[in-house]
Design a protein around this nucleic acid. Structure first.
Lengths: 114, 114
DNA sequence: TATGAACATGAAAAATTCTTCAAATCAAGA
DNA sequence: TCTTGATTTGAAGAATTTTTCATGTTCATA
């Protein structure tokens, strides 16, 4: 009973769909990091971060290993960077469009006020 | 009060994180399509599809226009294709890894049984 | 203008996901 | 061994998202 591909994709995107998880992935693009460092950069409760890390671990996007007192995380799929970049491209172009729309709306409003 | 970028990204990915929405986007990559055609390809209730289309419209990923009796949808950001492709790459490589893992587990099990 | 097909919408119930809190684990050092 | 810092875990309640159903719209055509 293989999970249909489109469902696997949906699950994959859904795991990217959380602000803390996105920040973690972006930080990890620069290289492996211990939890306490992530914790310092992203300002959330330790247990909350831990829960999100668990989500990323389950999907296999990151792996962790303990080094003494500290647990270090890293991306397991380096291509994640490409994905985030592609997303950024779309997103900025969409935000630009929205910005233009917004500008037009404001313009229209000014016109109306005369 | 601009929405922090990482939050915008998370929202963006979350809208991709639904099987019906993914299928819609993939179908629309091949070109514009009327709702009833999407409906035939994806087998869900009409109102359900409609709700998901509404989500995609709100995020600005698709646009629709009525042509007589029919409403035609299309991708508003053609780069969505790139994104889906990047995702597919990661996903398949991850699935392959999992497949290997699975194979090892089965192997280990066989070993154990001897 | 009455009817029907194609879609959309609003709202409530059902299902998932998030956040938070208390408690547990693990390794290092006193 | 006791303590402490680092991190994880389980569970419960809060918040969001999905699904579903009934009802609207819109346009074409009889």
């Amino acid at each position: 009973m293989p999970v249909p591909l489109y469902q696997a994709k949906a699950e994959f995107f859904r795991t990217l769909g959380h602000p803390v998880r996105i920040r973690v992935l972006e930080l990890l693009q620069e290289g492996p990091r211990p939890v306490h460092e992530l914790l310092a950069d992203i300002g959330v409760e330790a247990s909350n971060l831990s829960q999100q890390l668990a989500v990323l671990r389950r999907t296999g996007l990151v792996v962790s290993h303990r080094e003494g007192n500290v647990v270090r995380y890293e991306l397991s799929a380096p291509q994640v960077g490409d994905l985030l970049r592609a997303a950024r491209t779309i997103l900025t172009s969409m935000l630009v469009d929205q910005g233009e729309l917004l500008a037009e709306l404001r313009e229209a409003e000014r016109e109306g006020q005369r």
